[in-house]
Amino acid sequence: MQDDVVIELKSAWKIFGSRDKEAMEAVKSEGLGKTEILERYGAVVGIADCSFNVRRGEIFCIMGLSGSGKSTLVRHVNRLIEPTSGEIWLMGEDVMKLSSTALREIRAKKIGMVFQHMALLPHRSVRDNVGYPLEIRGESKARRWNVSQHALGLVGLEGFEDRFPRELSGGMQQRVGLARALACDPDVLLMDEPFSALDPLIRRQLQDQFMALSEQLHKTTLFITHDLDEAIRLGTRIAIMKDGRIVQIGTPEDIVTNPADDYVRDFVQNISKLKLIFAHTIQVPVNDYVPAAGEDLGQSPRVSEDVDLDHLVDIAVTTTQPIVTTNEKGEDVGVVSKDRLLQGIKGGK
């Protein structure tokens, strides 16, 4: 299990300001809060005591509103921002102990990054943009061209190699950004709100494309977003941030069914639960179920206890009987009545 952890942050803090070190000491010894630090040291807390780990192949989403510190947090992984305190581990290496040369090496070979505003080089062609990470590593032009051809193929942009970024639409530009991040075949992808600046339709398309690519390439991904829908669609696990702190980490289902506090509850309230909650979460054990008048479990449709609510609804509309769920051996384990199903859709248990 431990070998599987690719990115790990241990109690990372970032305090902005000229007196950051003093403020950090005060936080450690006195446990000062955000407002006190601002008052006493004129320093702003960017991220506070953030710990999490990302496992191999996982898409780990960090979700939070603007100003919650999520973009600051992701920049700690490749040390674009230096933490004030805490540890950062990347594939078993202590990133904080790396020399600047070793750090550049890691950035160039192991990490690909995608930015909210694309950050393409406006004076270079699409091909040269995608080949830029390789150029930094000193690869030959021939190799750069081959690799960018391949990466652009992955994101479906063949034929645009010799255009300038400004000639492309926003969605296409971000695909160039993704291709550039994939060009050096990194182990880790850092995506800082990559789809936020795009309109909803294009965003949806790019999410789908990204998921397909992810299936195919199995890159460990740290994905920043302010959109919970996006986090739930893409994330294997989600961390929710507020005011620089991580309030909750869990699978999308965890977050939706067990919000850690009112803040998270507010967020998940309007999220569609249909694809996030499964029969086993809402079912009543078959032995405890008391059939109402006119119900006969013998005539009930049988379905696996691992199907989601969406599927259950489709079945429920075809029958008057409650639905019986079965385990992998085909034994009856639970019953989902219509009342239960409606409660489940509303998010209750």
């Binding site: 674009l80 550049r104 950035r107 990490i111 393409l120 080089l121 830029y132 990470p133 930094i136 550039r180």
Partner: peptide, 27 residues
């Protein structure tokens, strides 16, 4: 020169000199 472009170059492991020659001066 847009800060985000410079940051992107840094994220891909560029040295200060590479950023100056390849990005800042041309822009």
């Amino acid at each position: 020169v847009p800060k985000d472009v410079v940051e992107a170059a840094r994220a891909f492991g560029a040295t200060d000199m590479q950023i100056l020659r390849g990005i800042e001066v041309p822009l």
